[in-house]
Design a binder for these strands. Structure first.
Lengths: 336, 336
DNA sequence: TTGAAAGCGCTAACAG
DNA sequence: CTGTTAGCGCTTTCAA
């Protein structure tokens, strides 16, 4: 049932080295012998043993993916894109989820990376300097998705620009008191998206000569529930905002829910803009900023695979386009 | 930088065999030597080479997951659960997505399974008899999630029961003309959930002595868009249903959207019940049937890991509980 | 309890 | 273009 390269060699009447070459499609093999080998392999129902091959070659043909959550829309889409191209390139995809920071060390240094993968894709949480240095030391190329660190390949969007466009849209619609539902700065993991989106939000204010009233900022954690609570807070203010920019669609969903619960309407009473263009944003008619998540996963995989193959390629830093999608949760401010 | 077992052995003053034993925690090692070995390993920053270990032992400590889509709520949650327990058990998780049927053969027979994983978790699409037989032949245990096949370990919910409860709820609310938004039977992949949910829907009718008017059945493909189109169809009927059971929450979302677009209201004009308890169902106030998706992933992993360890355990078939969650999209039928 | 030695199945020089 | 020959780094009898 389980045949080895040796048996294939015998059956094809060649050496194991030739079988190895033929099966890997190395140029230096006569078409005829190649054919004989392939036929022998087929007849024996032979499949290469990855462990043996990996041990001998030092290559794993495996790409590792690290993400903080696997069950959220953003990461699931990233992974879907990554899997598609890694499979098409003959690579296996190993996935690790990293919820707690203390697991990080273990994962980066220990079992995970080392000897297990040829390259690593790190989603959303930028590794520390030390971690990156460690990885370079072990010579395993890394690409970041949704974050950027100097000297490291990365694929991200222009979060600042996207947030600025979204906020600008609100300003153009006549809003002056604009709320912000941001990720809590107390959050243990250091994502860069929240920081950048917040920066874009502020930049739009500055460009318009507006001053942001920090009383209009509430915090959440990129979840629906937290967005809902944050909106409750905003609504409880003596002088609530007429529009709110949410750093993620999930939080925007929660915000809308809170607004309805308070007997108010979107966008008549309060306009809402999200960020991400979540699957359901269209359905919920949410004005938002879209980013090509799956494509980012695919792109990052191509980039990293390229590094694996051409060891000394300069790490690329790709920035993907973002697009403001105006739907039904934003309206011109008609108030005083 | 990269040290081998040999170096550890030397430094600890023992043989490589002892190092191997000590590091794996095999009983037959003096606490002292074990300590010495561990210390040496630590000092050398030694990490075992999985390839070598796999080649020598024949075990990969890796679990393979096959799912038709990675970017959908259900599968992302399953994977999240699977990853959690496989990591805690020291197993790596390899993920493959299978969109086209013709890739299946390649995946099952070839590169994937063989020599790469110790066990396989197949999500939603039940393997064919041949495939299962093949896997048994290669001695790699399989567990199905969301499907059931005799002689194979599996974790699923009672789809029939869940659908029956959901439909029963509608009937109890006085509805008599109940529509069904089902998965298209033309769909190439043979999921069992749609079939079972449809059966439950019909069973509820039968129990209530009602006859189902097949004109009230429309088809989708478990997506929002398809649910929307299906509802459009139903609404175009001369005598539309007063309530609709959707085989998935995504389709229910689409249905609600269509209803609103037609200027009707949920539940006043039409009641809607979904299935799954998608993350957003609560937020959208959708009455639905919940299933413990992440827990199913976790359970399946425990089950399969158990099989890996105790080779001759009878494959378990676990059925997880389902729960009808009544929210705001269903109301008593007040019409004629 | 520990060590010696024989592989596991493949790839990578190095010859030829 | 193909064969020979060493390993790759671990695990696993089998003895001691």
């Amino acid at each position: 049932m389980k045949s080895t390269i040796e048996e294939v060699a015998q059956r094809a009447g060649v050496s194991t080295a030739t079988v190895s070459r033929a099966l890997r499609g190395l140029a230096s093999v006569t078409p005829e012998t190649k054919f004989r080998v392939e036929q022998a392999a087929r007849e024996l129902d032979y499949v290469i043993s990855p462990s043996a091959s990996r041990l001998a070659s030092g290559k794993t043909s495996t790409i590792g993916v690290i993400a903080p959550f696997l069950d959220r829309w953003y990461f699931a889409n990233l992974i879907s894109g990554i899997e598609r191209v890694s499979r098409s390139a003959g690579f296996d995809m190993l996935v690790y989820s990293l919820d707690r920071l203390d697991e990080r060390e273990r994962i980066f240094h220990q079992k995970l990376v080392r000897e297990r993968v040829d390259a690593l894709l790190v989603c959303a949480l930028p590794p520390s300097r030390d971690e990156i240095q460690f990885l370079q030391q072990v010579k395993i190329p890394v690409a970041l998705i949704g974050a950027e660190v100097e000297g490291c390949a990365s694929v991200k969007i222009d979060d600042v620009g996207g947030a600025k466009a979204a906020t600008g849209h609100l300003i153009n619609m006549g809003h002056r008191r604009i709320g912000l539902i941001a990720e809590s700065p107390l959050q243990p993991m250091s994502f860069t998206a929240p920081r950048d989106r917040r920066a874009g939000f502020l930049a739009a204010h500055q460009d318009a000569g507006l001053e942001f009233d920090s009383a209009l900022e509430a915090f959440g954690s990129f979840t629906i529930e937290s967005g809902e609570r944050a909106m409750d807070e905003l609504l409880a203010k003596p002088h609530p905002p007429t529009a709110v920019f949410c750093e993620s669609d999930e939080m925007a969903f929660g915000a809308i829910s809170a607004i309805q619960r308070h007997g108010l309407r979107t966008p008549q009473d309060i306009s809402i803009v999200g960020f991400d263009d979540h699957d359901l944003a269209k359905y919920l008619n949410l004005t938002t900023v879209s980013q090509p998540v799956q494509v980012m996963g695919e792109t990052a995989t191509w980039v990293i695979l390229d590094q694996v193959k051409n060891a000394r390629t300069e790490p690329k830093a790709v920035v993907m386009p973002t697009q403001l999608i105006v739907r039904g949760t934003t309206a011109r401010f008609e108030g005083k």
